[in-house]
Design a protein around this nucleic acid. Structure first.
Length: 592
RNA sequence: CGGGGCGUAGCGCAGCCUGGUAGCGCACCUGCCUUGGGCGCAGGGGGUCGUGAGUUCGAAUCUCGCCGCCCCGACCA
């Protein structure tokens, strides 16, 4: 393949750097990508990617492509404009709700902009795959996705249009899916290693995607909006929605003995905190009662199921876990009037004793406890001496949200929570799409079987964004060489000086001949301006050609460490090659 | 969808309260000067003050509606 590109001369390139931070940018990556001239905003959550961003994205995409091809992935490019029918078949036309961009064509037909491509991939598969001999398949694309986010924010972190690598696997059985899933897991590790990111792999909820197993690749960052629970000791890590842990012991021991529930007056005390103050017992000695309404059943006729949930007073219910326990599409808190109708009491005085009309679910942290305090289902009254499994018979589930300080279920070490940004997600989908959309192939016995699917995503922009979040300082961005728009910038202190001019041009040509991705700062600017800009845009290496040229020497500076050495002009290309190779190795090695 | 903030030159902002010729810094253009960390001097160009209506002799400024953007919350394959 012949590559023709314009000369990378700064004076002719469009790199609109800003001296000041744009007012609307809050998080570091947003500020820096704007200031460094990578991106410009077009509308809320919609960005234009300028030269620098595009160069970085092309490098990221190339890494992704190489690793996907290495596991047998076949690259395609699917339609973004989708007819409604395809999404109606899987039931997601309704499920996606307002998050999907929808439009009508001139004939009034419903269309949407694809948020992901399970449906379309399945349509292709069911039209063409006939035999077990054609499986397994790994299909992927690098494609723009659309989501009408309720609140776009944080620059490129949450947007309405973005590039995603998404792949889909089709296998004959669960073992095949396991292998495909594993391959993706390993490929993703290599991709993020090569991009120079420090990432975590965490257990995740499979949510509206459906499916059995799922892991997220995430970056620890204060700018993130997800919470990851992790154990420093054994490496356990899970999304907060999914994390399980051992609760800390209750602050006070339960009263001993086979005591019967006993009503007591609690005038005006409704919250757990108020009751704690009134009874003098800690929140962990109480049972919190929550009335939730779960929506189950697919498509047109949703079924609403009210349930009573019991968790320890100081614990939080995880709605994700509850939905999973009930097999529900979504859960919500009951309205005050619903509670009054079902219990005859207000939300502040509810309890499980004597409840027969509703399913009662209790969190595992209450198992084995006795003689606790809870509501009496009578306004302004509570019960003491209530013992689960004796005074009421709940269904037991892990329903509570983990918190920092809980013990790791694998090793007992205290857990911590970190804010994080999701950059990749792998799912074992199961049969959800192949089943509902009628994908069938014949097995070796001529019997019709439904292939099992997986789906796997990587956010391209988020890789850049995370790298900027992770690697920046007061002067700007410090990108890993593998994803930086340029490997190095050649900076003659004074380009008008004939010697420096000549040396810079020569060096630029030599590097180009070696295939090195360099930028020549040929601008008629003061050295300070050129240094500031080079620091800002995050090019990993800078070669400064200045006074020492008289001795044949130039300055070779590493952006991230500011480490500087004087080397001979002729040695620069080899030196740069060595530095780039070393950077790749170390970024991989850092990941144990 | 709830709460808050903002909208004046490419960027960052002042002016608005108390109505009367639209300003500052940076960037940009020209010339001189300077050349190792966003130099210096001189001259210059650029704004229907988000938008529509209202009040007024007169609105960037006061009133009401709308739109857009940002932040917090709800939400988030």
């Amino acid at each position: 393949m012949v590559h023709i590109e314009v000369p990378m001369l700064w004076s002719t390139l469009f790199i609109p750097t800003l001296r000041e931070n744009p007012a609307e940018a809050e998080v570091a990556s947003h500020q820096l990508l704007l200031r460094a001239g990578y991106i410009r905003q077009l509308s809320a959550g919609i960005y234009n990617y300028l030269l620098l961003a595009q160069r970085s994205f092309l490098k990221i995409q190339q890494i992704v492509r190489e690793e996907m091809n290495a596991i047998g992935g076949q690259e395609m490019l699917l339609a973004v404009l989708n007819p409604a029918e395809v999404w109606q078949e899987s039931g997601r036309w309704d499920l996606m709700g307002d998050n999907m961009f929808r439009l009508k064509d001139r004939a009034g037909r419903d269309l949407c902009l694809a948020m992901t491509h399970e449906e379309v991939m399945t349509v292709i598969a069911r039209g063409e795959l006939r035999s077990y001999k054609q499986l397994p398949q790994i299909w992927y694309q690098i494609q723009t996705k659309f989501r009408d986010e309720p609140r776009p924010k944080s620059g490129l972190l949450r947007v309405r249009q973005f590039i995603m690598k998404d792949s889909y696997t089709f296998d004959m059985d669960a073992a095949g899916l396991d292998a495909a899933y594993r391959k993706h897991h390993d490929a993703y590790c290599k991709i993020f290693d090569r991009c120079g990111l420090e990432y975590m792999v965490v257990e995740a909820d499979s949510g509206a995607m459906g499916g059995s197993q799922s892991q997220e690749f995430t970056i620890a960052s204060a700018a993130g909006e997800d919470l990851v629970v992790r154990c420093r000791n054994c490496g356990y890590a899970a999304n907060l929605e999914k994390a399980t842990s051992a609760a800390t012991a209750p602050l006070a021991a339960d009263p001993e003995g086979e005591l019967a529930p006993e009503e007591f007056h609690t005038p005006g005390f409704k919250t757990i905190a108020e009751l704690s103050g009134f009874t003098g017992l800690p929140e962990s000695s109480q049972m919190k009662s929550l009335v939730m309404v779960a929506t189950t059943g697919a498509g047109e006729k949703p079924v609403l199921i009210p349930v009573l949930i019991m968790v320890r007073g100081d614990h939080q219910l995880s709605e994700t876990k509850l939905a999973a326990a009930l097999g529900a599409k979504e859960v919500r808190a009951a309205q005050p009037h619903e509670i009054k109708e079902w219990f005859g009491a207000g939300a502040g005085s509810l309890g499980p004793v004597g409840v027969t009309k509703l399913r009662v679910l209790a969190d595992l942290a209450l198992q084995g406890r006795q003689n606790m305090i809870t509501g009496a289902n009578k306004d302004d009254y509570h019960l003491r001496h209530v013992t689960p499994d004796e005074d009421f018979k709940p269904e037991w589930f892990d329903l509570r949200q983990s918190v920092a300080g809980d013990a790791c279920i694998q090793c007992g070490h205290p857990l911590e929570t970190v804010k994080s940004i999701e950059i990749g997600h792998i799912f074992k989908l199961g049969y959800k799409y192949s089943e509902s959309m009628g994908l069938r192939v014949l097995d070796e016995h001529g019997k019709e079987v439904t292939p099992i699917m997986g789906s796997y995503g990587i956010g391209i922009e988020r890789i850049l964004t995370c790298a900027v979040e992770l690697f920046n300082d007061k002067d700007g961005i410090c990108l890993p060489p593998s994803i930086a728009p340029f490997a190095a910038v050649i900076t003659p202190a004074n380009y008008k000086n004939p010697l420096q001019h000549e040396a810079a041009d020569l060096l630029y040509k030599d590097c180009k001949h070696l295939g090195l991705d360099v930028l020549l700062d040929d601008r008629d600017e003061r050295p300070g301006v050129k240094f500031k800009d080079a620091d800002l845009i995050g090019v990993p290496y800078r070669v400064t050609i200045g006074k020492k040229l008289a001795e044949g020497k130039v300055e070779f500076v590493e952006r991230r460490t500011r480490k500087s050495e004087d080397i001979l002009l002729h040695d620069v290309p080899a030196h740069l090659q060595k530095a780039l190779a070393a950077a790749l190795v170390s970024s991989t090695a850092a990941k144990r």
